Simulated assay, not measured.
Amino acid sequence: MMPDDPLSQLRDIHLPQAGGFWPPAPGWWILAFVLLACVAALVWLVHRRHHRNRWLRLAKAELADLERTAAKEPQWFTQLNTLLKRVARERYPNEHPEAQSGEQWAAYLLRHLPDDQMTQQPVVDALVNSAWQPVPSAEPAQALGFARTWLEAQKC
């Protein structure tokens, strides 16, 4: 080896060291931000839907209480009608359902059912009229069945 030979002073080819995992490349930062935004939007949507349907969960719980105390008495039918009016007021505030009674209220309930309105007509009429009759003409089981169906149709 000659000291003045420049080729003898060269070292072998060596590979560069592998990069570490930190800091990540810009693409990973963008992906992390997009995923975080998607998760935040999903949490917000679930929370909003849960909060929006809170009144429906409360109404179903109250309907379950009414089911336990079902009786063929006018005051029980009044409580059921009051529950349905509260739900209607919450779901359709601009229509002012709380001001309706009798045939208007029965027509309102039928109008906000999906498709099988005519099959429910006798049950709704009996439900509405049983609140003020001394001897109710409606059966509590049928009234509860209609109320359950009507509540399910009110989901947002």
Rank of each mutant, 00 (worst) to 15 (best):
R49G: 12
F77C: 01
L15D: 12
P24A: 10
V43T: 09
E67V: 03
I13D: 08
L63V: 05
L45M: 12
G27M: 08
R57G: 05
K72A: 14
A25K: 04
W76D: 00
R48A: 10
P74K: 03
S8D: 03
H50T: 15
R11W: 07
H50P: 03
H47R: 15
T78D: 05
L45T: 07
L58V: 07
R11H: 00
R52Q: 08
S8K: 01
P26H: 02
L35G: 11
K72N: 08
G19L: 14
R11E: 03
T78I: 02
L36K: 07
C38T: 13
R91P: 01
A70C: 04
A71G: 04
D65S: 15
W76M: 02
L15Y: 10
R52K: 15
Q17D: 13
Q79N: 09
W55T: 02
G19V: 09
F77S: 02
W22R: 11
Q9M: 01
L35Y: 02
C38V: 11
K72W: 01
R86K: 10
H50I: 13
L42E: 14
G19Q: 05
Q79A: 06
A41Q: 09
A41S: 10
F21N: 13
P26C: 04
F33D: 00
A61G: 06
A61Q: 15
A70H: 03
K85I: 02
D12N: 01
L7R: 07
L84A: 01
A37C: 13
I13A: 10
A37P: 00
L58G: 08
R86G: 10
P26I: 03
V43E: 03
A71L: 04
E73P: 01
K85R: 08
L31W: 09
A64N: 12
I30C: 09
A71T: 04
L7V: 04
S8C: 06
A71K: 09
H14M: 12
H51I: 07
W28N: 13
W76R: 03
H50S: 15
F21W: 04
R54D: 07
F33I: 15
D65E: 13
L15W: 04
A59I: 01
I30L: 15
L63A: 05
F33G: 12
D12K: 03
H51R: 11
L10W: 08
V87C: 06
R57M: 05
T69S: 15
L42G: 12
A88C: 05
E67L: 10
W55Y: 14
V46S: 14
A70Y: 01
A32E: 04
R11C: 00
A40M: 10
A32C: 08
